[in-house]
């Protein structure tokens, strides 16, 4: 093994361990964050892009691990690499941001650009330690699950309040929309077009797939009713021929199935 820094396909590989005593180690893959349209929360020169971060590794732990390379400003964790900031939940009760689970990717934003270079040149044979001196503790196992269970308490009044405000806002919006639609009913725009709304005398047909299907089906049925069958002798002949052709085709299909079965030796009873 090379003792200095190891690079695989542009990524610097650095081992990391839970603590000094642990036997196995994980390998972090990292390089400079470089995208065309950089977001201000991840400045191009000061951000280190890290792959293969274990699920139990939190922002604080990462911050601790990379503090050796220089002061860390923030850490962003994602399921997949993105240039934008982490999604923030709008509500405590109705999560909108995706849950970050499993192995994840991280963006470590340093205070100084030189820290990124320092991190890039970390040696392969000195592992980073997650649970060293002064490190934030990792909660896992029974301890974590018990505390998760204990934390699962619903704050009823807050929830009720949140719902109430949201619904009031929603109702107001719907009301506004309706009033606007009502007001514009029958009023032509600049070019003279009139938009049909739900509130006028002649309601517009809904623009849905199901509705279109129903209309075209009706049309087909009507056409079929009008058609004369078995009127001309050529029609009669044709139906007979069709019948035989049908039988033949079925026969052919069956024969094919039989030959398949024969291949699978399905005709040996014992």
């Amino acid at each position: 093994m090379p003792s200095e820094n190891v690079v695989v396909e542009g990524f610097t590989v650095v081992p990391m361990k839970v603590d000094e005593k642990s036997h196995g180690s994980h390998y972090l893959y990292m390089k400079e964050h470089s995208v065309r349209e950089a977001n201000p929360c991840k400045p191009r020169d000061r951000t280190l892009f890290v792959l293969n971060i274990p699920p139990y590794c939190t922002e604080e732990v990462l911050q601790y691990m990379f503090s050796g390379c220089g002061q860390v400003q923030t850490v962003h964790l994602h399921n997949k690499p993105t240039s934008g900031p982490s999604a923030v939940n709008q509500s405590n009760f109705f999560p909108t941001a995706p849950l970050i689970q499993g192995y994840k990717v991280g963006y470590v934003v340093f205070k100084k650009a030189s820290s990124v270079k320092k991190a890039r040149s970390l040696p392969f044979d000195v592992p980073l330690i997650m649970q060293g001196k002064g490190a934030p503790t990792i909660k896992s196992g029974i301890e974590k699950w018990c505390s998760d269970y204990q934390a699962d308490v619903l704050d009823r009044s807050t929830l009720q309040a949140e719902i109430d405000t949201y619904m009031a806002e929603y109702d107001r919006k719907v009301q506004e929309e309706m009033e606007r639609a009502k007001a514009s009913e029958g009023v032509p725009d600049d070019e003279g077009w009139v938009t049909v709304t739900r509130f006028g005398k002649n309601k517009a047909a809904p623009r849905t797939e199901a509705h279109e299907k129903a209309i075209s089906g009706k049309e087909k049925r009507r056409r079929k009713e009008k058609e004369l069958l078995n009127f001309y002798s050529f029609q009669i002949r044709q139906t007979k021929r069709d019948q035989i052709a049908n039988l033949r085709q079925k026969f052919e299909e069956d024969k094919q199935r039989i030959s398949l079965m024969k291949e699978a030796r399905k005709f040996r009873p014992y």
């Binding site: 093994m1 196995g24 180690s25 390998y27 699920p55 301890e143």
Partner: peptide, 30 residues
């Protein structure tokens, strides 16, 4: 994890020790 070095090519191999370490940590107490 990178296993061996041939020229500048690294072969990746299953990191059994890492997996075991993970399991131990994630299932602490269990």
């Amino acid at each position: 994890r990178p296993e061996s070095c041939e020229g500048d090519q690294f072969l990746l191999a299953l990191n059994i020790e890492g997996v075991i370490e993970d399991i131990k940590l994630m299932g602490r107490g269990l």
